[in-house]
């Protein structure tokens, strides 16, 4: 196994994913297989190759910094799990 449980726990924390014990066991096995599989790239000679930035070679487009959209907060917040007075509610962050 190229990854152990501790590494997978670290990755899951980075990804903010809560996993069950069963999921951890399966993830160690399957993620190790995936990492082993993609490791074949390390054998490729990529000296002086510029990493791809855009598949069609286009540059990032810019636009003037104008106000283009109106505030539609109430409409968008209809999908929010918990809101009060236009504010999103989360568990207490500060004591």
């Amino acid at each position: 196994m190229s990854l152990d449980k501790e590494q997978v726990q670290h990755i899951a924390m980075l990804a903010r994913l809560n996993l069950s014990d069963e999921e951890y066991a399966e993830s160690v096995e399957k993620l190790s297989k995936i990492v082993d599989f993609v490791d074949q790239l390390s054998a490729v000679d990529t000296t002086d190759v510029v990493p791809m930035a855009h598949p069609v070679d286009a540059a990032q487009r810019l636009r003037p910094d104008d106000v283009t959209a109106t505030n539609d907060r109430d409409h968008y917040q209809q999908n929010a799990p918990e809101v009060v007075d236009g504010l999103y509610l989360v568990p207490k962050v500060l004591e």
Binding site: L41, V44, P51, M52
Partner: peptide, 8 residues
């Protein structure tokens, strides 16, 4: 590395 191979 993958983005380099992608370019190749």
């Amino acid at each position: 590395k993958a983005q380099q191979v992608r370019q190749l």
